[in-house]
Simulated assay, not measured.
Amino acid sequence: MTEGNFVDYVKIFASSGNGGKGSVHLHREKYITKGGPDGGDGGRGGHVIIRGNENLWTLYHLKFKKHFKAGHGGHGSKSRSTGADGEDVFVDVPLGTVVRDTETNDILFEITEHNEEKILCEGGMGGRGNWHFKSSTNQTPRYAQPGIPLEEKRVTIELKLLADVGLVGFPNAGKSTLLSVITSAKPKIADYEFTTLKPNLGIVEYRDYQSFVMADIPGIIEGAAEGKGLGHYFLRHIERNSILLFMIPADADDIHKQYDILLDELRRYNPEMLDKERFIAISKSDMLDEELKAELKQELDNNLPIDYMFISPVAQEGITQLKDKLWQMLNS
């Protein structure tokens, strides 16, 4: 999937259908000139329904179609005939989608399961026909209920990636390189910062035809929680990952300090992120000879509060061991 096709934020307008009018009708047929009321009910207006679809990975299909209108309910008719219900409109979204009210920014609901359905705009109920209002004192009512009007909403739809492992790190830490090596994804790779401007997903194939999903989140910068850089657009994709894999390059000035800064950005954005399992991959370790690696290992053993591993996607070092470690963490 190219970066231009990855859309994770859209605004749409939705409108349900009006309920049909109840019928005011008096029964007439041969030899019956003054029959009782037999006006039928109006049909229900159509709903606008948000539906989860596991085959979608992005909101790209909503980029150019942003207005959704359901059908109106049919009017009631004679012989107590009920009007047809308005046609429902379904809006398919990927799993991990959050729907917000655009005006208030309140979360209306989230879609996390395949074929899960939530009514966004409820169709108006049909009005009752005049036969409902017949009584001993009013045997020929000449009135019926109108249908309930439609409902309109402007909503913002956000995608938060559902992935097993999320890659967290500063720009140019080697996240895209790892994703390209460990999966069949083809992210853009270059030796400058902010090469990745949209999240990338890849499926990691493991032993015995098993697999898990890895997400390359665009690089975080200090102050991202306050909206620096692209701030919240990046951080929200990390919320749904089961494991956070911190990527820190071996040539960083202070590996422990980089980890602390990244962790602090996650904490300030959403403290619940600190409850997730975390692991550190020291990337670009092919730049280190054995002596430097031993010195760095001794330093990290004394300072880093969580487990770590040296890897080099370019040199294919530590990749199998990393897969084993992530699989073990996912299934522990």
Rank of each mutant, 00 (worst) to 15 (best):
K30M: 11
R100T: 13
G127C: 06
R44P: 10
G126W: 03
R207L: 13
D307A: 07
P313R: 00
A70V: 05
D191N: 10
D208G: 04
G40H: 04
T196K: 05
S283N: 01
P305A: 07
K188T: 12
I280T: 08
G124Q: 03
G124P: 03
D41H: 15
K118T: 06
L230C: 09
H61K: 14
G86M: 14
V98D: 15
L162P: 01
N53F: 01
R267K: 15
T183S: 08
M273Y: 06
M287Y: 06
Q321T: 01
E205G: 14
F13K: 15
M273N: 15
V213D: 09
K69A: 09
N53D: 11
E3Y: 15
M287A: 12
D164P: 01
H75I: 11
G4V: 15
T156P: 00
D101I: 01
S332I: 05
I49M: 08
S77C: 04
S23L: 11
S79E: 03
L159D: 03
G231L: 11
I221P: 13
D164V: 00
I255N: 09
E222Y: 08
L288F: 00
L178G: 00
I282F: 00
G45A: 04
P249N: 09
E54C: 07
A70R: 03
D208S: 12
E290M: 02
H61W: 06
K34A: 10
R28V: 12
N172P: 01
K118Q: 14
I182L: 02
A84Y: 07
E291L: 05
S285G: 01
N55P: 02
G123W: 04
Q298V: 07
R268E: 15
Y233N: 14
L304Y: 00
L322I: 00
A250R: 05
M1I: 05
L201D: 07
A173H: 01
M247Q: 01
